[in-house]
Amino acid sequence: MVKRGATSDDILGTAAMLVCGRALRLIRGDLRRVLTALPARAVPGRRAWAVDGHRSVAEADGHLARLLDDGLPAVLRGAGTALTTVFAEETGLAATGPAGAAASAPVIEVGQTLARTVRALDELVTGVQTVPAGAPVQPGPGESPYAVAEFHERSRGPVELIRGAAFQVPAFCALLDLYRPAPPEHPPTARHAVWQPLRETVRLTGGAAHTAARLTEDLDTTLRSASRMRLSPF
């Protein structure tokens, strides 16, 4: 459904919110996987990693939930309230707020929320990366030292990916923040220009969340597998 007379700015703005909404739900799904895995799966010898990581990720998940509950807006400037409401219902988005400075708020809020998310994931893996290569780590009761070493070796690639995303996302969010002035002060192509940093912010955060989910879920498998090898009579 496209209103006759809708501008490319309306179409791009609505499409961006649709993409963000779907991506945020996928990211929340990965954060829930992390939260499910963390309480029972702490890095051996570094229990605070799970406790602090769970707290940070839970806060980020809460910010994402509030953003989705409030509703990302459809963009249809110049239309009446009735048409805007119908358009929002058709797209599954919220009705557009009043014109003015608030028009830039959804883009900036998405960026800020994703920045909090990737920062929480960075905090989650900090405890893993601070273990030097080859350093001995004290295993917990009943845990194999071979499992500890194996996990730390296998985690280095995913940890670097997450930390790399955490390094890049703030820079893209700084570009999104340039969109803060009221629309009359924007150049005609402002929303088109803001799409690239928004896309990269979503892409990097989504990749980091999925990697963190796989990392935390893989920990239990690694520990059990290595322990079975150590205890095997063969």
Rank of each mutant, 00 (worst) to 15 (best):
D69H: 15
R33F: 00
V86H: 13
L121V: 08
L215H: 08
L26R: 11
A147Q: 10
G100Y: 07
I108R: 14
H152K: 15
A103P: 13
T201L: 01
E123P: 04
P132I: 12
E217W: 00
H54A: 10
A212Q: 02
T222Y: 00
G157F: 07
G100V: 04
G134K: 07
R199P: 00
T126P: 03
L219Y: 07
R156G: 06
Q168F: 09
T14C: 05
F151E: 07
A120K: 09
P233A: 01
A166M: 13
A165L: 03
G164F: 09
V34G: 03
V57A: 10
G92P: 13
A60H: 03
A165D: 00
E59S: 09
S8P: 02
A190G: 06
L198M: 04
L72Q: 04
S56H: 15
A115H: 11
P184R: 02
V159T: 13
V107M: 10
Y179N: 05
R55P: 00
G21T: 04
A166H: 03
P106I: 14
G142N: 06
A50T: 03
A226R: 04
T221Q: 07
A209E: 07
G53A: 00
D30Q: 08
R4L: 02
R156H: 11
A60K: 06
A58K: 11
C20Y: 01
G111A: 13
L83N: 00
D9K: 01
R46Y: 03
A6M: 07
D9Y: 09
A166C: 04
A88G: 14
A58R: 09
P136I: 00
G29Y: 09
V202E: 08
A105C: 04
E143R: 12
E153F: 13
R47P: 14
R180S: 13
T222V: 15
A182N: 03
D69N: 05
H210G: 12
A42Y: 01
G100Q: 02
L31Q: 12
L175E: 12
V128S: 01
A23R: 11
V128R: 01
V51L: 11
L12F: 15
C20P: 01
D218E: 15
A212I: 02
R191N: 02
D10T: 08
R224V: 14
D52T: 09
V110P: 00
Q196T: 11
T205P: 10
P136E: 06
L178G: 13
R214I: 05
L198S: 03
R230Y: 12
G142Q: 06
R214H: 05
A174W: 00
A190H: 10
L68D: 04
G134V: 11
L215N: 08
V86Q: 13
I27N: 00
A37G: 07
V169I: 09
R116A: 10
R4E: 14
Q129T: 10
A171H: 14
R230L: 11
H152N: 15
P132T: 13
T113W: 06
A101K: 10
A82M: 06
Q138A: 09
A115D: 08
L68Y: 11
R47G: 14
A65E: 12
F151R: 03
A135E: 13
E185D: 13
R180I: 02
Y146E: 15
A213F: 14
A79M: 08
A82N: 05
G97M: 12
A48C: 05
A74R: 01
G71Q: 07
A209R: 13
F172D: 14
L198A: 06
T36F: 15
L12Y: 15
Q112F: 01
